[in-house]
């Protein structure tokens, strides 16, 4: 009888499932190199603190915990509450951007002539730094009750749109033609069937990584946008601290928190991606 290599199959699938968790950085026990890097960083930092250049790691940590639990006396809010406003803006702006980027990306990826038509506009708009839209936004939204809010949404939108749009167009265009033919020979004769049953599902991982980089760029943009005329959010907070003066440690803490949140968001999107597209080799 057939001695099919079933054992091997099970083993390989177990590997895959285990791996999808093991390769998530935050849940991984750090390698010794990582520990060494942290240790070396702390050592250099302490040395600089001894020379009076920066606050010592201990003071820094204390201030961080203070900002996290008690909050900043000037804002009377905790770091996370301040961050929350920025995150909210990010989610609204990026959400809108992704909705438009994915739908238009699929259309332009699928209809090549439409893509060639729109290419001129996209090629010109893509290299514009999102922050350059701030003055345009203030003019556009001057009549609305909260122009700053809409300007921020717009900047995040501009930042998040193109990475996601590009990724979507690219992933739709690079759908394996063999797979499309396979679907055709199995009876998917209509374009609509090919689009819905083949191109869209195969584009999911590409779209997710587009969302990932879009979120990253959007997060960078929101901090910059909040420097200009914002009332709330981590960018406005950093700017206020600068204006008050004498708060280098707090500014560094805020900046590093921005980095940390960006990193966590990235990991969360990867995590969700693994959940949604379990079939893909991430």
């Amino acid at each position: 009888m057939s001695q099919f290599n079933i054992d091997k199959g099970i083993k390989s699938s177990e590997n895959v499932k285990g791996q999808s968790w093991r390769s998530i950085n935050i849940l991984k026990w750090p390698s010794w190199e990582r520990w060494a890097a942290v240790l070396a960083g702390l050592l250099v930092w302490t040395a600089c603190a001894r020379l009076g250049l920066v606050a010592s790691p201990y003071i820094f940590g204390l201030k961080f915990m203070n900002l996290l639990i008690i909050g900043d006396p000037v804002y009377n809010l905790t770091l996370l509450q301040i961050m929350g406003t920025s995150l909210e803006t990010l989610l609204i702006g990026a959400g809108l951007a992704f909705a438009l980027a994915v739908s238009s990306g699929i259309l332009l990826g699928y209809f090549r002539s439409l893509n060639r038509f729109a290419d001129v506009f996209i090629s010109i708009c893509r290299p514009i730094p999102p922050l350059a839209w701030i003055p345009v936004g203030y003019v556009l939204f001057a009549q609305l009750p909260q122009p700053t809010f809409w300007v921020q949404i717009m900047v995040v939108f501009m930042g998040a749109f193109f990475p996601c749009f590009n990724a979507t167009v690219h992933t739709v265009q690079s759908t394996d033609p063999i797979i499309i033919e396979a679907a055709q020979t199995l009876g998917a004769r209509r374009q609509r069937q090919i689009l819905a049953q083949v191109i869209l599902p195969s584009a999911v991982p590409g779209i997710i990584s587009g969302v990932r980089s879009g979120l990253g760029v959007g997060w960078m943009c929101i901090i910059g946008a909040e420097f200009v005329g914002a009332r709330m959010g981590i960018g406005a907070y950093i700017w206020s601290l600068y204006q008050l003066g004498g708060r280098m440690s707090e500014i560094m803490i805020a900046i590093l928190s921005v980095g940390l949140i960006g990193y966590l968001m990235n990991e969360i999107v990867i995590l969700l991606g693994r959940r949604i597209a379990r079939w893909y080799s991430w």
């Binding site: 033919e181 396979a182 004769r189 599902p201 079939w279």
Partner: peptide, 18 residues
């Protein structure tokens, strides 16, 4: 259009998301 033909591609060409 030949729906009564089955085509097996090189290396299978399975749909990876299914």
């Amino acid at each position: 259009a030949k729906p009564d033909i089955g085509y097996v591609f090189q290396e299978g060409a399975l749909f990876p998301w299914l």
